[in-house]
Design a protein around this nucleic acid. Structure first.
Lengths: 231, 231
DNA sequence: GCACGCTAACCGAATGTTCGGTCGGTACAC
DNA sequence: GTGTACCGACCGAACATTCGGTTAGCGTGC
């Protein structure tokens, strides 16, 4: 029926001890960042729409109203999270090998770095990849995400023009498979497991780039350029 | 929730009007199946938790209360959808080449047929793959899904033991990449586009099986067996 | 051939519950 | 005494679901 009446104890949870300004008092006190971290974790567990502010408060060890002391509301938490994810992803495109390098080499770099970003910012990217576009915030994030996808697709196209991709696979399909596989990492990869990110990135790029580059003769392979993809 | 509440003759199939008995009014006159089809489409657009019964009613051209004439509630719609998806997926495992065929050949068949099922039952599988486990219904579905994944992973392990998978890639990782890529199809593949399922399945199996089978020497490839993956 | 009852299909107006969010206030560090 | 961090109590809106009907077509008796 009713929740247990807690007598104003601040039993703050242990982890997420951001040790920036050397806290002296034993009052941990959430900042925006540590609060966001917990919120995103819960959003990913139950889904953004499936998470209530009350459940969020419970997991934070706070009351519902206290959350509004730190952020404007539920939607701001979402906005902060996906902006962080998108900024990290776009940074990958603007760094990397000089533009005069071969497109194939640059693509390889983008894939590898995307895997690393995905691992480093896993909760934030996970939230981004599961948006539905139910609010303005979500729709704007999806628009930025589509822009990212578009720029990667262009790079794949240039790699294909260089001959970096086997001719019996449509470059548009190659894009989809490449980043479909990369994005599917959010479904199972856990950075705290015993598979290092470097090994993951090595294996993923090896499998996909070798599969995408070599002309195949294995059993039931096709021989003609395949159908185009829309959108 | 639990057992299906009686199964009297359900109405009509999806709008392939066979006009079997007699003509109804000009109204759509939904049966369970056609109603489910619309509902699942809306669930996939806005997310299950993000879809209200009112929005559902609007899209059906019905009143909210009329939905309850056909199904017990929102959760039954979800249950019907994911059961259909899971039944189709498990059927793939139980058909196919005889058990005395090589594991590699059987795996290839499972991957190809999974792609086909994914395309044929796209909305239902999409809904399944996006569950969070917020209710008993969802948790039961996720349990069945994990069982499917486990059986596929076993098959990959046997294929690896046969030598069907290159030795510098851990079979557990190979499983994840393989079905990560297959499952990522729900994010972009549309059966009504101009990429036929057969071409898709050909290309996907070609890229992945060639990438996974051949020992690589392309640039930055690893050389040792990679780290293990947990659960 | 038509009156009658039956039922599937539907609706508008409610039900209680949960939602995201607000408000006035307390504790305490500096 | 001012600012930061927090809380319980509360609010209107939206939620899934229920209830008491109405309508239309079909089968049957006659």
């Amino acid at each position: 029926m009713g929740p247990d009446p807690l007598h104003r104890h601040n039993g703050r949870m242990s982890n997420t001890a951001i040790s920036r300004p050397a806290r002296r008092t034993e009052r941990p006190a959430y900042g925006r960042d540590s609060l966001l971290e917990v919120a995103v974790a819960v959003f990913n567990e139950r889904g953004y729409d499936g998470t209530g502010m009350e459940e969020l408060a419970r997991r934070l060890g706070l009351s519902k109203s206290s959350i509004y002391h730190h952020v404007a509301g539920k939607e701001e938490l979402l906005s902060l999270a996906v902006t962080r994810a998108l900024d990290s992803l776009f940074a990958v495109l603007d760094e990397g090998p000089a533009p005069d390098t071969s497109a194939t080499a640059r693509l390889r770099h983008v894939v590898r770095r995307s895997v690393e970003v995905l691992a480093a910012e896993l909760p934030y990217v996970t939230l981004l990849l599961r948006l539905h576009g139910n609010s303005d915030t979500e729709r704007q994030a999806l628009a930025r995400r589509r822009e990212f996808d578009q720029r990667v697709a262009d790079l794949v196209l240039r790699a294909a023009a260089e001959g970096g991709i086997r001719h019996d696979i449509d470059p548009h399909l190659a894009s989809r498979l490449l980043f479909g596989t990369v994005n599917s990492l959010i479904e199972w990869y856990r950075p705290d497991g015993n598979l290092p990110v470097t090994t993951l990135a090595d294996s993923l790029t090896a499998v996909l780039f070798e599969g995408l580059s070599r002309q195949g003769a294995a059993g039931a392979g096709p021989g003609r350029p395949s159908g185009r993809i829309q959108d």
